[in-house]
Write a protein that binds this DNA or RNA. Structure first.
Lengths: 205, 205
DNA sequence: TGTACATCAGTGAACGCGCGTTCACTGATGTAC
DNA sequence: TGTACATCAGTGAACGCGCGTTCACTGATGTAC
């Protein structure tokens, strides 16, 4: 990354990237505006040309995360079609893959303590992500007889909760709970059992 | 809480309590040793008579959390006996109740970023908690034919992940994801479907 | 019961640090004519 | 093409702040005789 004189060129992007790296390595606590500026080769004051402050920078990182997340989930779901079941399982794998490949984003989104309602843009991105998950759940649950079909939002909340739990507890070193199983297997088997419980997978497979 | 002169009486306890309240209200980031000391009516330096430093204080809070947690889970499990199923469901409810009633402890345990291996005492307490959960899973899974029975540690990891996910995503205001369902119902229905998937609950109930 | 002394549990001042933020500034770039 | 000027995107110095931690100290308590 060649420094090119007085003007940086694309400082905003560089700052978000630096923030993501810092959040990833030091946690949301360890992230400081000053260090992000330093890593981008710039004075802390320069940050204020592009962001309102520290929190705003984190919010932007989270926003980008939700956008990527929604895109990835959507893509995985589409690719798994026309089988709703296969599509759904691809979605689950995509969830974990995202958390793994973009830990900075994931932490900014879920662990940084910033409210999703901090900015309209962030709220919109988060809502879109939730929407994609819910639609996947709704599609799949149509295969359940209507009288025994749980609400799609309940269904997707279950899956989301399990996915997030696996990420937090077993995909990071977090509580020293080094997993006895690879997180991917853990999540896949968990979702499999759950879907069987819904009657979406034959019981004796 | 009457201040009684030069000596505090039970400063260690008071500091942990202050820390818990601060962690609960301001998050693990917002917690500072200095303010905990202030809330306990004491100079920051006094903290060092009882703890090695800031991190050590958080670790002690987490340790107490794991001890309480293990006790509560164990108690709920015992109380649900002799029906392994009822006992297991009581355990799930106890999980959520703990997170709800002791948010400071819960955060210190899972969100403060301190390693469970920081001190032997903390590691032991965490291991005990995990052990209790695993035993509950093992007991219950004995009702599954041996050839289709998943390892107890896998089983309990699934339940733990879903419970933790529900707490993080829906039981707190965290990602603005205000839940469409009460967390208790969400978790109970999720575990219900999962157990059905394992064949532990008849499919058409 | 009284006294000397050791130990314990606090104080308070001081430290160096890095933080987020502000401000007046200036160098670089773009545009109108 | 050249020049004047507005705008943009950075600097760098300064700020006040609260932090965690250390240190020599001292008041309170407990114990031995």
């Amino acid at each position: 990354m060649p420094k090119r004189g007085y003007h940086h060129g694309n400082l905003k992007r560089a700052l978000v990237e630096a923030a993501l790296k810092l959040i990833e390595t030091k946690g949301p606590t360890g992230f400081t505006l000053s260090e992000a500026a330093k890593q981008a080769g710039v004075t802390p004051a320069a940050v204020y040309r592009h962001f309102e402050g520290r929190e705003d920078l984190i919010a932007e990182a989270a926003r980008q995360g939700f956008e990527m997340f929604a895109d990835l989930i959507q893509y995985a779901y589409d690719k798994g079609q026309p089988s709703a079941l296969a599509a759904f399982e691809a979605t689950g794998r995509a969830y974990l893959a995202f958390a793994r490949k973009h830990p900075g984003h994931y932490i900014a989104m879920f662990e940084s303590g910033i409210s999703v309602n901090r900015t309209p843009e962030l709220a919109a991105a988060a809502a879109r992500a939730r929407g994609v998950l819910e639609r996947a759940a709704a599609d799949l649950s149509e295969q359940i007889p209507a009288d025994r079909r749980p609400p799609a939002s309940l269904f997707s909340a279950h899956i989301w909760a399990m996915s997030h739990g696996v990420v937090e507890l077993f995909a990071r070193g977090a509580p020293g709970t080094q997993s006895p199983f690879p997180p991917e297997d853990l999540l896949e088997s968990g979702i499999g059992i759950y879907l069987r419980g819904l009657g979406l997978i034959p019981p004796d497979t």
